[in-house]
Computed example of a mutant assay.
Amino acid sequence: MNRPLGLALCLAAAMAAAAWAVFTDAVEIPDRWNPWAPLDVQAPPDWLTGHKLARARREPARCLAALAQTGMRYDLLPDRTTGTGCGLENAVRLRSAGVRLSPAAPSLSCPMALSFFMWERHALQPAAGQRFGQPVAAVDHLGSHACRNVNRGEGATPGAARSRHATADAFDVAGLTLADGRRITVARDWPHAGAADTDDATALLLRDAHAGACRYFDGVLGPDYNAVHRDHFHLETGGYSMCR
């Protein structure tokens, strides 16, 4: 066996042994640096946060355990079918969050509710503090659960795929209200093409909110994607990875 190959095999074996020791608790490391530790929703995000969030969203019991840490108030919803390819599974009715929601009490799958908390807590509020020196008090939305197909702007299309809204795995954010009552809307304040160098704080906050959402949701679509999304951010979990 040549020397480089031998060193590579030894390194791989050492890494596997170390991983197994951590996994079996033979060696204790802080949860923050342990990839098998549960997601801590209150901890500052680090390089393992995305991995832990994705695992929590995949496992219903783990998702609900993480959601219970958030401090949000919600009602568990019974699993049910609401139409062909539509329904609720491991879902909650969100009664209160870190911000007011308007309209109130949307129905969201547990993965969506968990991702919403992570986005609001670790992306949206820090951005609002940076841009305006105050928090976001309310999030205006256009709905979550709806038994319908993907909307590409051409109207109802027979045989089209179901939207992530059909299973409460999507949420459309239309605007924000700051603590001082100032309203920011995607339709009015999003910096469209030609405004790349804007210094407008409202536009920058919306950009920050969009970019932050891409860290905590599987899919994010905004006004630059197409005309259908000109007035909102479409946030979803469980679908294709996209940030547009």
Results as ranks from 00 to 15, higher is better:
P158Y: 05
G194A: 08
N149D: 15
A137R: 15
L235F: 09
G153A: 03
A196G: 13
D231G: 02
D218M: 08
R207D: 06
A138R: 04
A160W: 10
R188I: 00
L205N: 01
M112T: 15
W119R: 10
A170F: 01
H165G: 04
G181R: 01
L235V: 02
V136T: 08
L204N: 10
L108Q: 01
M112R: 01
A128W: 05
D172M: 13
A156T: 08
D200F: 12
C214N: 01
S107K: 06
A168E: 01
F233I: 04
L221C: 07
P135K: 01
D140G: 11
A104R: 01
M112E: 12
D172F: 06
L206A: 07
A161L: 13
G181D: 07
P106D: 06
G155K: 02
Q134K: 02
G133F: 03
F217I: 09
H145Q: 06
S115R: 01
R164W: 03
L221K: 05
A227I: 05
G175F: 05
A113E: 10
F171Y: 12
P191C: 08
P111W: 12
S109D: 09
G143K: 00
A123W: 03
A146M: 02
S102D: 09
L204F: 01
P103V: 00
G219R: 09
A146R: 07
Q130F: 09
A179P: 06
T237D: 13
I184C: 15
S163G: 03
D200Q: 12
S102P: 02
D218K: 01
T177K: 09
